[in-house]
Nucleic acid binder design. Structure first.
Lengths: 212, 212
DNA sequence: AGAATTATGTTGCAAATGCAACAAAAGGAA
DNA sequence: TTCCTTTTGTTGCATTTGCAACATAATTCT
C-alpha cells in the first residue's frame, strides 16, 4: 500500500501502533460491491489501501452521476463525518477489488491516552486534506462561475499559469476532461479554443498551452 | 460578542483559559482598513468578535470581486492556514470597526500540555466548520454545473425542498441573490421562473415556492 | 501492419441566454 | 401621504452555446 496523505509524516512503524489505538478496521470488498450507500450513517473516514472506487450521486430521477474516481491513498466520507452530517448522500462503489480502512471519526479527534504523539499530526493531516479540497472547490467555482466559455477557459489557464509560474505550461486534462471540468460542451470548447488562437490570445498544441 | 462556531460546546469560562493557552491575539481594525491583504502569510485563523468584513479577491485585471461578507462569529483564513498554503490570495477588508481574534494554526492543532480538555473540541469544531463549507461548495457546484437555467433552478429548489422536508418552502434569497447564486442573468431567470409556472412545474409567490 | 477504439476538430442549426432598456410593484423615509 | 429607492417582471435582439453528425488524427490492441 502507498501511504495516504492522511498518514503524512507518520512513520510506518508508528502508523501500525496508531491504527490499533485508533481502532481502524480493515475490510475487503469485491469488485462491483457497494462500500457505502447513500443514506448510510457515516461516522467514519474511509482510506483506500488498495483498489479503485467511484463516488456516485443519484439525482431525484435516479440518474447515476459519477462524481469522482478515487484510488490508493485517497480518503472518502471525511466531509460527512467531520461536518457531523452522519448521513451521506453519496454512494461508494468498488470498481476493482478493494481494501479499505475505516477509522471512526470520534477516535480521530479525541486525543488518546497512549501518548500518541502522532495523533496531532493525524489531525493536522485531516484538516489539510479537507482544507485543500476546499480550496480546490473554490477555485473551480471561481472558474465555472464565468459567463462565457472563453472566460472560463481563460480563467482556468490563468490559474494554471500561476501554479506553473509561467505562461507556458502543460495541462493535466484531455479535451474531454477539460470540457467536463469547465462544464461546457466539448465541441463548443474546441471551437472557442480555435477562435482564441486566431485572436492571438493563446497558443495551443495538444496539452501544451501558452498565454500570449 | 456572540460565540463563534469555532467555540461551540466550550463554556465561556473555559474559553478564556483556553484562549490564553492558545495565545490568541485580539486586534482592532478601523472601518475601511485591511485586515489581511492578498499575498500575506496566513498561519492563523481569524475569528470576528465584532463588526463586519468583506472577503475580496482581485482578478488579473485588477477587478475587485466580493466573495463574501462575514460578521460576528465567522471565521476566515482557515482554509489557507489548514491547507498549509501559507499565502492567501484573498483580501479581508473591515467594512465596519472590527475586533478580530487571531489564533495561530499551530497552536490549534498541537495539543497543549495544560490538560486543555476543550482543545479536542476546538479541533473538532474547526474540522466541522471546514467540512461544512466543503459540503456547501459541493452543493453549489452540483447546481451550477447543470446546463440550463431551468435545470439549475430545479436542482436548487429540490435541495431546498429536501432541507425543509417539504415541497413548500421559503428561500433565503432575493431574486437578485438567487440569480447570483445560480450564476445566471436575473432577467433570464425571471423569464424561466415564469415559464416553469406556466408549465405547471412550480408555484411561486415572492420567496415562497412549491414544487408540483 | 492492420483493425479497432478513442481523442480531437469542424460545422450547421435551433435553442438558450445574456444584455439592455423599460415598466410595474413594493417598501422605506421624510 | 408623497417621493424616492429597490425589487421584480417583461421583451426584443444579438450572441453564445449545446447538440448532432461527421471527418480526421492519434492511440491501442492483436
Amino acid at each position: 500500500m502507498s501511504k495516504s496523505p492522511l498518514f503524512d509524516a507518520i512513520h510506518t512503524d508508528d502508523l501500525e501502533k496508531m491504527l490499533t489505538c485508533l481502532g481502524g478496521q480493515q475490510k475487503k470488498y469485491d469488485k462491483g460491491t457497494f462500500i457505502m450507500i447513500a443514506g448510510d450513517i457515516v461516522d467514519f473516514v474511509g482510506v483506500i489501501l488498495s483498489g479503485n472506487v467511484q463516488v456516485i450521486k443519484e439525482d431525484i430521477n435516479g440518474n447515476r452521476n459519477i462524481i469522482a474516481e478515487l484510488s490508493e491513498g485517497d480518503v472518502f466520507g471525511e466531509a460527512f463525518a467531520c461536518a457531523g452530517i452522519s448521513i451521506s448522500n453519496e454512494t461508494i462503489l468498488a470498481i476493482t477489488d478493494c481494501e479499505i480502512m475505516m477509522i471512526k471519526f470520534k477516535k480521530i479527534v479525541t486525543t488518546c491516552s497512549n501518548a500518541c504523539e502522532f495523533h496531532s499530526k493525524l489531525i493536522s493531516n485531516m484538516l489539510k486534506i479537507i482544507a485543500q479540497k476546499n480550496l480546490n472547490l473554490n477555485e473551480k467555482i471561481e472558474i465555472i462561475t464565468k459567463r462565457t466559455i472563453r472566460e472560463k477557459i481563460m480563467s482556468y489557464l490563468l490559474t494554471q499559469a500561476e501554479k506553473n509560474r509561467s505562461t507556458s505550461f502543460e495541462i493535466p486534462f484531455t479535451r474531454n476532461e477539460l470540457s467536463d471540468y469547465l462544464c461546457v460542451e466539448r465541441s463548443a470548447m474546441s471551437r472557442e479554443l480555435g477562435k482564441m488562437q486566431k485572436d492571438g490570445l493563446i497558443k495551443v498544441e495538444k496539452r501544451n498551452f501558452k498565454i500570449l
